[in-house]
């Protein structure tokens, strides 16, 4: 599986124009240092409800804070008078297909359902808000 032959490419040692186009040192402006972000516990609970995802552990909140800190670099760019870009196809017409019903065997569609009864998907009672994960309160305090 290992390589058997190392290709040898020899270039004439010329100081050509192309050679000087490739920067030999990094071209990089140092990013502004943004302060640490602290996400209040109420927001943590709100995000769990909105996401229907549990942080599960305190480190997950720290990871979110780091992700937000990282993203803040976008504040450093002046975007006044710049319109948000949703898609690169913004100047093309993208026709929608006709909304025509297609025949599918319901059995095939429901093939991946774990819990079914008499042709219905079984779900637990609705309209009950997700309970707050109290463990997070302790971990964050």
């Amino acid at each position: 599986m290992g390589p058997t032959r190392v290709p040898l490419v020899i270039f004439r040692a010329l100081s050509s124009k192309a050679r000087s186009c490739v920067p030999q040192e990094p071209v990089f402006r140092k990013l502004k240092e943004h302060p640490r972000v602290e996400i209040p516990i109420q927001t943590v609970h709100l995000l769990e409800r909105l996401s229907l995802v549990r942080f599960g552990e305190a480190e997950a909140v720290t990871r979110l804070e780091e992700a937000v800190k990282f993203a803040q670099a976008i504040f450093d760019v002046d975007t006044s008078n710049v319109e948000p870009m949703h898609t690169v196809l913004e100047n093309r017409s993208v026709p929608l297909r006709e909304d025509r019903p297609q025949r599918w065997d319901p059995k095939l569609v429901l093939n991946n359902v774990t819990k079914m009864e008499e042709g219905f998907i079984v779900a637990p009672p609705g309209n009950i808000a997700l309970k707050e994960d109290e463990r997070l309160n302790d971990l964050r305090s």
Binding site: V53, G56, P124
Partner: peptide
């Protein structure tokens, strides 16, 4: 509850990267 089922399922089904 439905919301609890969703949250529990997503905790078990996704890695911490995805949930993050």
């Amino acid at each position: 509850s439905t919301e609890d089922l969703f949250a529990e399922t997503r905790l078990k089904g996704f890695s911490d990267v995805v949930r993050g």
